[in-house]
Design a protein around this nucleic acid. Structure first.
Ligand code: FES
Ligand code: FES
Lengths: 152, 152
DNA sequence: CCAAAATCCGAGTGAAATACTCTGATTTCA
DNA sequence: TGAAATCAGAGTATTTCACTCGGATTTTGG
């Protein structure tokens, strides 16, 4: 039950792009330095984000990446989908590998529900939310879940 | 973002134990046959479930496994914890590997929240819920999420 | 126009996690 | 006493992950 490093790295990079929204493009060099991410790895990640339309790139001198939508219009769900693919908590839920059993399978209905819930929740969190949380270091140690960010 | 096969298999096995709650113990042979799970693998899984107190075993002839609590008192969370360990969506959240950065890390607050949400939700689903869902094959195709099972 | 700065692209590699096996010991009961 | 079951721990195979490499392409500054 883990999100891959690709998604974590990708999210971090997108955070700095969000800060610099509407400014100059940011290069892989800068991004990887800021977040201590191996350059060639981040390069791949940014490519995938571009292919999925979350980000756009400009070549050559002074080039780099820019967000393609406003931070509040990019959800964690999109990011994770772009980098890890759609969430399939168990292999049977993978749309490309339709399972044979299916009927009467005791577990698939639950996993499907949890899966759905997770996607919903990730869909409700945007890059703006992430930025808000970063600079508001969990005040008071109460349950952060019902803190600042909207909760189902 | 996957649950391991161990957890999926374990859940299936626990389902049949739930059906036979308060009856004769069920052997690995029976369980693995019913769910098409490789016997020696399931053996390991049942051992772990016993070590975590979800199940108890009786040796020798006619032996096998029994639930140690009523089905409505066993949550998905417990099961997943027993077999996959506590949920740590990103490595930084793993309590055994406390991260150095932490302060000002842009992503960890969000992942922590999602992590918490997930645990909460899995904690709210019990073996009874799973059984109910199994024999009620998603009537009407509506959003199953707010169907029969309690939702946050 | 050219060289430097950047992204693009596809293939390839090493390590780690996962999924599962094997062997033998131990307990129980007919 | 021996068959049926779990127990225990080490071992192996496969897949996924995390990351690299080499070279092509695009853009811009000088
Ligand atoms: S085994 Fe595939 S749906 Fe359950
Ligand atoms: S890198 Fe460890 S908390 Fe963010």
């Amino acid at each position: 039950m883990k999100v891959t490093r690709k998604s974590d790295y990708g999210l971090r990079a997108l955070c700095t792009l969000a800060q610099r929204y509407n400014q100059e493009p940011v290069s892989i060099g800068q991004l990887s330095a800021e977040h201590k991410i191996p350059e060639p790895f981040l390069e791949k990640i940014m490519q995938e984000l571009r292919e999925h339309g979350l980000v756009e790139a400009t070549h050559g001198r002074g080039g780099g990446y820019l967000l393609k939508k406003r931070p509040s219009a990019i959800s964690l769900r999109e990011i994770v989908h772009a980098l890890d693919g759609p969430i399939a908590l168990v292999t049977c839920l993978d749309p490309s590998l339709k399972c044979a059993i299916e009927d009467g399978c005791p577990t698939s209905p639950v996993w499907e529900i949890v899966n759905q819930k997770l996607e919903e929740y990730l869909g409700s969190l945007t890059l703006s939310d992430v930025m808000d949380l970063t600079h508001r270091p969990l005040s008071g140690e109460g349950d952060r879940v019902s803190g600042k960010v909207k909760v189902s």
